[in-house]
Amino acid sequence: MKPTANMIPLALVGLVVTAVVGFIVVVLLMSWFSNPPFGLGNAPPQPIAFPHTVHAGSVETGGVGIQCEFCHRNVTKGAAATVPAVETCVFCHKQINPENLVGDTAVNLVEVQRVVDRFADGNPIDWERVYRLPDHVRFIHEAHIRFLTQGEPRMAEIPLGGGGSRQLPMPVGQACSVCHGDVASMTEVQPQAGQSLKMGTCLDCHRQNNVATDCTICHK
């Protein structure tokens, strides 16, 4: 067929369709391989600036060294780690509030005041979820914490958070950092590289530690 002027619109349509389909394919591939789903450093902003450095960081680094499971109470007891209620914050912030924090920075005073206000109003804080698993996945924090923190001293292959063998049992705080990174040193919690919490990372760890890999262990 000889090219004619009539075919120009057709060619243009072809080009546009190719471009659109290509764009969609590229976006899908990028979102599939982006690591983690939000992308590194793109966790949603929290309603109140909660610095894990101050709360969970060690005393040497300027924190107060609260254990993870003090606020995430359910982490050793059930499936969900749970985000603390405002009451848990007020447990400390009843005393550590703007009336008593004379020498602190203005920013901190504002943020702490917000927590106290929420408690006074009786409103919960709508924390944004950073780590989210799909609906069809059953992840039991308790069982994983138990594997990492209890039992006979042994070496286990932990591929996440640096990789290699580790001496088990380890303290609960360290066990959290296997999947969540060193949260105590994060002002804002962000998923770390290699901790996408996709199925591959789960399976790597399960295989290396002789844990069952049957579909129904994790998929419900």
């Binding site: 059953r138 039991i140 069982a143 138990r146 209890q150 039992g151 129904t216 262990i217 419900k220």
Partner: peptide, 22 residues
Amino acid sequence: CTFCVQRLRRGELEVERRAGGR
């Protein structure tokens, strides 16, 4: 039908919780 495999997993978890191990 799954023979309620979710109940099996819950039962296993409770055994592990009581035993404090795997």
